[in-house]
Design a protein around this nucleic acid. Structure first.
Ligand SMILES: [Mn+2]
Ligand SMILES: [Mn+2]
Ligand SMILES: [Zn+2]
Ligand SMILES: [Zn+2]
Lengths: 139, 139
DNA sequence: TTTCTAAAGGAGAATTATTATCTTTGCGGA
DNA sequence: TCCGCAAAGATAATAATTCTCCTTTAGAAA
């Protein structure tokens, strides 16, 4: 089972392993395209028909707080979630609302190199992420 | 008056020049830190005590649509606005919710160079922006 | 195993940000 | 100056999220 690691993580952080937490985490992993709370509810409603909307939000918050999930910025008024915890960038398609992961160590190296040489005065950088907007070519 | 340009722009785009539009635009320019609709309402309520909340949102939308303002992404559930239309990046402070502009043509050049050489398969890039999180050093 | 209890879930109300509707106002062309 | 339509105002509606309060349950302890 691929959620063994997740269960372990919950325990390590002193959080209870509940079927709801596991289902939500698995949903975020399964649902590509950085799902919304609504996407997650729809997805797991087959297994957990009675899961409460408030519970989903609460669990998402808890998991983000404990670094088991990430929130993904976007210009819409809906938060989206990501199970990929490794630092990475995002490709945004404005037309389709698709968000894809983009990982490029070479580029990261170039950028972090640049900022070790050229500091931003008055600002201590913790993290840099690229938002690449454009469109996915179908075919 | 510094909003002459703005008035001109409204006319060019066939939009009426109203005191509310001017006030909102000036508020976004004046209020540094990429204000929210609420910030804007508070700011202009001295001059326009009766401005309607819905009007503020509608005007902000209109101005964004006509490229006279920009929306700024952030992880909170409130949209923020920017009068700086030139492409630029943002410095985010998680602690204080401050968002500052960051402009660096040299860096932009390096990045766009990188992507002319190394394409992302299946994706047509329209724009790249950096989100730099960290903290502002107070003095 | 059974018991206990704090943590977590469920139901639904409340809140927040935003959008929509509908009426009134006023910008700006003629 | 007049007029029509775009835009503003008031307020209701919606959407996403959070809160409250009560019930359930994970998991530690007995
Ligand atoms: Mn909202
Ligand atoms: Mn919201
Ligand atoms: Zn991602
Ligand atoms: Zn800006």
């Amino acid at each position: 089972m691929m959620s063994e690691y997740f269960r372990e993580q919950l325990k390590e952080k002193g959080l209870k392993v509940t079927p709801q937490r596991v289902a939500i985490y698995e949903a975020v992993v399964e649902l590509k395209n950085h799902p919304t709370a609504e996407n997650i509810i729809e997805y797991i409603s087959k297994i957990h028909p009675n899961i409460s909307v408030g519970t989903v939000y609460k669990i998402l918050d808890t998991l983000v707080e404990h670094h088991l999930l990430n929130k993904v910025k976007n210009e819409k008024d809906v938060m989206r979630y990501d199970a990929v915890m490794k630092k990475h960038h995002h490709l945004y398609c404005e037309e389709t609302d698709k968000i894809a992961d983009f990982d490029d160590p070479e580029l990261d190296h170039i950028i972090s190199d640049y900022f070790t040489k050229k500091k931003i005065k008055g600002f201590k950088i913790k993290d840099i992420s690229l938002q690449i907007t454009g469109e996915f070519k179908n075919k």
